[in-house]
């Protein structure tokens, strides 16, 4: 019995509960860290550091690029986005809602992208003001003690939603166009 009158078994039960609560808080923090670092790498851009943030069997579904599965296809996706150029856009990632279920977790986030450079007459013109709002809906999985993306879906929701992307995907094969979408 402890000084506060608890038996070892009662203390053990409290520790089990406390351990689970601390672990859940740590996991949420680690997952936030993962997603924030991913978007910062996307913005900067640091492509070489991004692939290892995904599980080997991860499924990524980003805008008009179509669904990609596994590291090889995700690397190909990054290559296509990279080839589209590195615009000087601003990225603001906010409002995480993360739920952890053991070694799996889900998360939704809001992304705002501020665009300021547009091609014009062979050059680039800077126009401030345009922005997009997007949503990440992700699944994360813990492997060998490290959280990674197991599934990532991203769509622009405002001012012009990506609904046409999903409609087109339903109507025909996924397109894999270029553009500035990430």
């Amino acid at each position: 019995m402890t000084d506060d009158g608890m038996t070892d078994d009662e203390l053990d039960a409290q520790l089990v509960s406390l351990r689970a609560r601390v672990r859940a808080l740590e996991d949420v923090e680690l997952i936030k860290r993962l997603h924030r670092t991913y978007v910062r790498h996307l913005a900067d851009p640091l492509w070489d550091d991004m692939l290892s943030m995904f599980t080997a069997d991860a499924v990524v579904d980003v805008r008009q690029y179509g669904v990609r599965s596994g590291h090889a296809e995700i690397a190909e996706l990054f290559g296509e986005i990279r080839a589209a150029g590195s615009p000087r856009d601003g990225y603001v990632l906010t409002s995480p809602v993360v739920d952890v279920y053991g070694d799996l977790a889900t998360g939704s986030w809001t992304l705002h992208r501020h665009v300021c450079e547009f091609p014009a007459q062979g050059g680039v013109v800077r126009v401030f003001g345009p922005w997009w709002e997007g949503r990440y809906r992700c699944t994360y999985r813990r492997e060998e003690g490290r959280w990674r993306f197991a599934a990532m879906r991203f769509r622009i929701v405002a001012p012009d939603p990506d609904t046409d992307v999903d409609e087109a995907a339903r109507a025909e094969a996924p397109s894999r166009g270029g553009g500035r979408a990430r």
Binding site: D8, L11, D12, L15, R19, V22, E29
Partner: peptide, 24 residues
């Protein structure tokens, strides 16, 4: 045999992890 030393040690480890979360 009391498991108290082991439980107290575990409590200390959890306290340290919680302190790190609070520090963040």
């Amino acid at each position: 045999r009391s498991r108290r030393p082991e439980l107290v040690a575990e409590l200390g480890r959890l306290g340290a992890r919680l302190a790190d979360l609070e520090a963040v």
